[in-house]
């Protein structure tokens, strides 16, 4: 027989359960305290060579210095980022998977148009340094000089100019909104559809179409071959100050902002591991403000502006709301 009383035995069991449950609970606390102890995956839901891929690779050395761990770029392209987004949501919320992506327009677009099995709110923004806007442009040798001329011509005959645009995009919504504001029936326009910004830009620069509506940033290498007519932004855009604002054309237009690209995590991580979220945002802030990083990325036409999680989240949600409002124009 042993000397254990029943009470002692109970205490022992209860204690060991307590210790065991403490051990089970420990790792997440430990993880938060020691984070990061191993390399962190950066999920880029695009193929190598795109803006987000270049941004992640160019920024990685500066971010690695702040995080104290190497970053591994994981390209998961396909289905308008839906594959990469789903992949990110399936990873454990431990801070070892972060996204570098065009949060807008792709997350809202996959939700609104492709019935993606997640919500806009399932993703939380850390920082969205790159902001792109729809640019209406013509080939540099086109007779059209201003956006007002385009409106005038189309008011007289909606079929007089061909218009190049990517369907199911913010550019398309902005094009329709502008022409509706000018009382031009969009269904009578000669719209030419392109399955990507690149082909739409080539068609604009090569005068295949009379006017192109497409994200402006991608035009930068071709800037000598085009003439900007109107950019759909509130204020002068720092990377293209020559582009006249849509407000200056005399039209009163509501518009959807273009791409918002940068660093994103799952909302699950933000809620369950607030320390990790804070740590990541702190590291990003320091890296974004590192003068060496700013200089290096500027040479590659990549953005480093620090907006922070709150402002980025606000801009992203506002953009998503606008897209939901005008989604019928994008279909």
């Amino acid at each position: 027989m042993t000397d254990f009383t029943r009470r002692e035995a109970f205490r022992l069991v209860a204690g060991s359960v307590g210790v065991a449950s403490g051990l089970v609970a420990m790792p997440s606390i430990l993880r938060a305290a020691d984070y990061p102890t191993r390399p962190i995956n950066v999920i880029v839901p695009f193929a190598t060579g795109g803006y987000n891929d270049r941004l992640s690779r160019a920024f990685a050395p500066y971010l690695e210095k702040e995080l104290g761990q190497p970053l591994v770029i994981v390209n998961k392209p396909g289905a308008g980022t839906q594959l990469g987004n789903s992949y990110a949501l399936n990873q454990p919320a431990d801070g070892y998977s972060i996204l570098c992506t065009s949060a807008a327009p792709y997350i809202p677009l996959t939700v609104l148009l492709q019935n993606a099995p997640y919500k806009v709110e399932d993703f939380s923004m850390l920082n969205l340094p790159s902001r792109d806007y729809t640019l209406a442009a013509t080939s540099s040798d086109s007779p059209i000089k201003t956006f007002a001329e385009v409106i005038e011509k189309l008011q007289a005959d909606p079929g007089s100019l061909s218009i190049g645009v990517q369907p199911a995009s913010a550019d398309y919504a902005n094009m329709v909104l502008a022409f509706q504001a000018a009382k031009i029936d969009p269904s009578k326009l000669r719209i030419v559809t392109y399955d990507g910004g690149g082909p739409a830009r080539n068609a604009t620069a090569g005068a295949q179409v009379d006017v192109g509506f497409v994200g402006g940033e991608g035009f930068l290498p071709l800037v000598s071959k085009i003439r900007p007519l109107a950019i759909f932004a509130e204020e002068t855009v720092d990377w293209y100050p020559d582009a006249p604002l849509i407000g200056a054309s005399g039209l009163k237009v509501d518009f959807v902002e273009g791409s918002q690209r940068g660093w994103v995590v799952t909302t699950k991580l933000k809620k369950e591991q607030p320390e990790i979220f804070k740590f990541l945002s702190g590291a990003l802030e320091r890296a974004s403000k590192n003068p060496k990083a700013i200089e290096a990325l500027k040479l590659q036409q990549l953005a480093t502006t620090w907006y922070g999680p709150e402002a980025s989240e606000k801009a992203y949600l506002a953009n998503a709301d606008k897209m939901a409002k005008y989604i019928d124009l994008m279909k």
Partner: peptide, 27 residues
């Protein structure tokens, strides 16, 4: 000459140029 990729492989070459701070195109 234009900074436009003809296919997947040249798209990667463009990225490689840009990663070394050189932007292919008319410029």
């Amino acid at each position: 000459a234009l900074g436009i990729p003809g296919g997947g492989a040249t798209a990667i070459l463009i990225a490689a140029f840009m990663m070394h701070n050189i932007v292919p195109g008319p410029g």
